Structures are given as structure tokens and as C-alpha cells.
Amino acid sequence: MHSHANEGANGIGSSVGGSTEGKIRCIFLSEFHATAGCKISCQVPDNYISKEVFDAINVYIIPKQHLQRCILTVNTMDVKIVGYPVDIQDQQKYARNAFLFNLCFVCDSRARSVQYEPVVKKLSEYLIMMEEESCFLSREDDKVRLQNIFETVLRDLNERKVATIVEGDNTIYLKIVMHKPDPPSVKDHMVPLLLVNFRNKPLENWDLTTQQILPYINGINHVARIAAEADVETDLVKSCIQNLVYYGVVQLLPILKYSNVYMTQNLKHLIQSTALSNACRKYVALNPDKTLPSVQKIFQFYASMTHGVTLRAICQRLCPQNHNIDERKLVIFGLQHKFIRCIHKYPVFTGSVPSCRQKMYTGLISFDEICCKTGLSPYTIEKDIEKDTNVTVIWK
């Protein structure tokens, strides 16, 4: 069972948006004492969770029986508390026939906390074992040892994301595993580019599907073309590329066409970083044996990219090949390092009864995707739309 109790300004169930990565601010152990009731018995750093805050939320820290041994997250008063409440039953050992406790990690209220949940559970299970073996938690004289454990875990997990605890014959290893969000679904018109760190990796080191499609991944071929040329089923290619994107091996780019319009952004980084500008000069060189293109010429090319100006028009004006610049590689490098972005065109049908192709003109499907789905060239689609008074084109 996996439960979350999120308490926000409006009470239980309200959510807090805009989560960010954040450190563990505090670790504490709460227990239900036979006479004192619900209390914090050990906390690092001391008094991070005040008595007032704890008294307001302790009903969620030591909850009812049906919420035992599952992750509970309480979000309130600018803190997020991740716990794993435990109820150890033993009529001989404990005054109320049971020992109730909860090990909790505390983060900022907007911090992402899901990566801490397995660690909280594992550390709690370790403390259960220690308690059952030697009453490690319920004996008052062991609180200093527990505080030392919490200090080690807090420091090491925040600094190195790993921690090791040795108590007598017992050793526990804790590790924070960061879960990436799922990559976006890969579509036929998307263009994969193998990132530089993986370009020289031997082919036999990849799985079989990747081995088949890798020779066709060049930053220019789109997914549908890769599938056709590699003779691999399209859905298999999409799954493979999605996996490569997830692990940071491949980046997805828009189809490179001379009718495309690009806009500059963050161009100052090219000038500010000598390493980046040198890498760019090498990458975009039409002939690497000749004098490398100057940063000034490369910058001029990027700076010419603006709304309403096609790549074709820029090439006709600046003649990049006369300066040893491969304009296709220049675009790829710019997209990869986010110096430029492609302005996509989305046709919208505004008439009453759409034809088969006009049904795709929803404003949500780009030219590139329409070309891939229909098998028609961008020029054909362009001419079709220019003649159609019921179609408007959105650029974004």
C-alpha cells in the first residue's frame, strides 16, 4: 500500500505545485509514548520541527492502524515530511502492548521528495530489526547512538547521495536514486542526434536494435526514414530512440529543411565560452583540413536567423560554403546547444466541412508531422495551403 497525505493551506488533499530538487533539511524519529503520548524522541538538527508544528500534525505522523507500514507524505507549514509509520506488537515488551514510531525525512514544501521514499522505507526496516533485536529505539539510553546515525545519514545523503551505517554486526547501505521523468513520445517526423560522448562507442556495445539503426542516426534523418533505411519496424525504432533519449544518449531535433525559419536565443554563450566556440568551429567545418570557419562568421550566420527569414534566404545572402561552413551542421549544432530554435508552422482549417487532409489542420499538428503522415513534400503542402482560403497558418 502506498499513501500520501498532503496537507496544504486548504487542508488535507491540497497540492503544492512547482516542485524542485531539494536537500533533506531534517531527520526525526517520532514515537507514541505510553504516558507522554505522541512526541519527537530524536531530531537532527534539534528543534527543526517545533513542538507547535508537530502538535498540529502528529495525527498524520502516528496515524491509525490501516496506514501503518506505507509511505505517508504530509505537506504543511512550509515543510514536507516523508515518513513510514510502524506498529510493532509485543504484549510482554511494551506498556501498551505495542511500540509505535515513525522515521521521517523533512524537505522544503516545494521540494521533490519521491526519491527519498525508498530510503525512508529501507532505514525504517533497519530500525525495526534493531528494535526487535535489542529495543534500540524504545530504550532511552540509545538515543545518542540514534542521533549519530541521523547526523551521518543527513550529511552523507545530502553531500554524496549515499550513506553507510554500521551498528554492531549490522550494516546498511542507503542510496538516493533520482528518477527521471518519462521522455516525450517519439514521432515519425522527429530527428534523433547521437550526443558527442557516445559517437565513438563501438557498435557491438549496443543492443541489437540500436546496432541496426545507429548508422542512420545523423541529425538529419527523421524516424520514419531511419526505420525504412534500416529495415526495422517503425514502432520498434520509436521505442529504441525513446529509450536512448531517456538515458541521455540521443537528443531529438526538428527536421532540417531550407524552408525552415529559426530564431536565435542565448547566443552570447557562443562568444563567452572559448571551448564551445572552438567545438562549434570544428563541428560546422565543411572541410576540416582547410582553415576552420571564424567565430565572427558563425556568429553572423546565427544572428541572421529571425522570424520570417528562411534558412534558404540566409544561405543565399551569406554563402556559408564560401567560408568553409556546412549550414546543415551549423543548424544542428545551434539546436543542440539551444542557440537557436525552429519556428514550426501549424495549419488550422477554418471552414465547415474538412477534406481528408484538412482534418489534420487542427493547429496541433506541425507541417513536419503532416508531411511525414501524408508522404507529401513540404512544397506540395505549402502550395495546397496557399490556395486554400479556409486554412490559416500559425507560427510558433
Rank of each mutant, 00 (worst) to 15 (best):
L203V: 06
I172R: 00
K338L: 01
I298P: 09
I220P: 10
N58T: 00
G308F: 13
D207E: 11
D87R: 13
V86M: 08
V295A: 11
I24W: 03
I365K: 05
F99Y: 11
T362M: 10
F301C: 13
V261W: 07
E382K: 05
P181Q: 05
C38N: 13
Y246N: 01
E125C: 02
V74C: 00
N287G: 09
Q316L: 03
Q68N: 10
G17M: 04
E233P: 08
C38R: 13
D87W: 10
I49V: 15
L292M: 13
I62G: 03
C70S: 07
L174F: 04
H189Y: 07
Y48D: 13
Y94M: 10
N322I: 02
A285Q: 12
N97V: 07
R25D: 01
D78K: 10
T20F: 03
N197E: 10
N278C: 07
V144Q: 12
R25Y: 03
F136V: 10
P293G: 13
A98H: 06
E125K: 09
C280I: 13
N287H: 15
V120M: 03
V348G: 06
H189A: 02
G351A: 13
G37A: 01
K201T: 10
E167A: 11
K396T: 12
Y258S: 15
S124V: 00
L330W: 11
E117Y: 12
D207W: 04
F101Y: 08
I27N: 05
I255S: 13
C315N: 10
K257L: 12
K51L: 14
Q321I: 06
Q43T: 04
L194I: 10
T209M: 07
V284E: 12
I332R: 06
G11I: 08
Q212E: 08
M190F: 03
M178G: 01
N287A: 13
R317H: 11
L127P: 03
E125S: 06
I24E: 02
A228Q: 15
N200C: 08
S259T: 14
I24G: 01
I81K: 01
C315P: 00
I314Q: 03
S15L: 11
T210Q: 07
T380A: 08
Y60I: 00
E386P: 01
N75E: 12
D78T: 06
L193I: 02
R25T: 08
R155I: 02
E131H: 02
A227L: 14
E382C: 08
K282E: 12
I255V: 15
G17I: 04
T350S: 14
P118R: 12
I40Q: 04
D182A: 14
Q296N: 15
I213W: 05
Q43W: 09
D78L: 04
Y246V: 00
I128H: 00
Y258A: 12
M360C: 02
C42R: 13
E233M: 06
Q92D: 12
Q147T: 04
G168R: 11
Y258H: 08
Y258D: 15
C356G: 14
L253N: 14
Q211H: 06
T73Q: 04
C107Q: 11
V16I: 09
Q300E: 14
